[in-house]
């Protein structure tokens, strides 16, 4: 009985907007922009016009997630397992400090750092001429990794922190060298944090538009940017809704696939990779 209000809220807050968007996606753009009712799949037929946005997003979001994992895991590991009692709070603070400033301002700072007077200028000093960073996919990737790294570090850190360190000793005691211990004990036991972090970063990246807009210079176009343009510029709500529904569909499929793969991997008893 008590669950009923919760379910209602869930429906109201999560499902209703999706239903509205789904209905919109079957409509038509009103002459002055917006939505007018219709029942057509024309918007979906037009999806290919945004193919590049989808391919960009579907390349850079997973790539960004993977790079985040590769950088965040060793850092989180150091933080949770190796860092001394004095260094740990300091390093944790460093991870959290960026959250004190608006994400926008921080990303804006990267425009300057990656721009002609920033890193490329420093590269010139060591003889690398005319290296272009700002408004390239690389710049977007750097922004993504910078922006989302803490979201990856923290869940991994938490799961590694919770990891019973004596299990590592047990593993070593039973004959596993550090590498095997990592793959047989540490990694599988920190998998929940890894999965949480990956999903968090991946889902947010799929909807990202600020970083490509600021650091991609309008040339690295994400689905998020397409949505902003469709809703705020062309005011083509039905097409925007169709793009949004498609994005949600792709995300659900990707997450399901990912969780299935992870689940299967965790279910397998001998996860030894070596």
């Amino acid at each position: 009985m008590l669950l009923l209000p919760t379910t209602l809220w869930f429906l109201l807050l999560l499902v209703m907007p999706l239903v509205v968007i789904a209905v919109y996606s079957l409509g038509e753009r009103a002459p002055a922009g917006g939505y007018q009712p219709a029942l057509t799949l024309a918007q979906y037929a037009n999806l290919l016009a945004r193919l590049k946005a989808f391919t960009n997003t579907l390349t850079l979001a997973p790539l960004g997630t993977v790079i985040c994992i590769v950088i965040a895991y060793p850092f989180a590991y150091y933080l949770a397992v190796k860092a001394g009692r004095g260094a740990k709070p300091f390093l944790l603070t460093l991870v959290i400090i960026p959250f004190w400033t608006s994400f926008l301002i921080r990303t804006y700072a990267w425009i300057y750092i990656l721009g002609g007077q920033g890193i490329p200028r420093l590269l010139e000093m060591i003889g690398i001429e005319d290296y272009r960073l700002i408004y390239t996919p690389t710049a977007v990737l750097i922004g993504i990794v910078y922006g989302y790294l803490p979201l990856m570090v923290l869940p991994i850190y938490v799961s590694l922190e919770k990891l019973d360190k004596s299990l590592l000793e047990v593993s070593s005691d039973l004959g596993a060298n550090p590498v095997r211990t990592f793959f047989q004990v540490t990694l599988p036991l920190s998998a929940p944090g890894l999965v949480t972090g990956s999903l968090l970063v991946f889902i947010l990246l799929m909807g990202e538009y600020l970083i490509p807009a600021l650091l991609g210079g309008g040339k690295v176009y994400f689905v998020g940017n397409a949505l902003v343009d469709l809703f705020l510029q062309s005011r083509n709500w039905p097409f925007g809704s169709a793009v949004a529904i498609t994005l949600v569909g792709i995300m659900l499929a990707a997450i399901t696939l990912y969780l299935t793969l992870v689940g299967r991997d965790r279910g397998r008893q001998d996860v030894s990779v070596l």
């Binding site: 753009r29 002459p31 002055a32 922009g33 016009a49 945004r50 590049k52 946005a53 309008g218 176009y221 940017n225 397409a226 343009d229 469709l230 510029q233 062309s234 005011r235 083509n236």
Partner: peptide, 14 residues
Amino acid sequence: TDPLRAEIMARFKA
């Protein structure tokens, strides 16, 4: 309000 101009701009960006 011209939908074609809006769409061309969006296609150009995309």
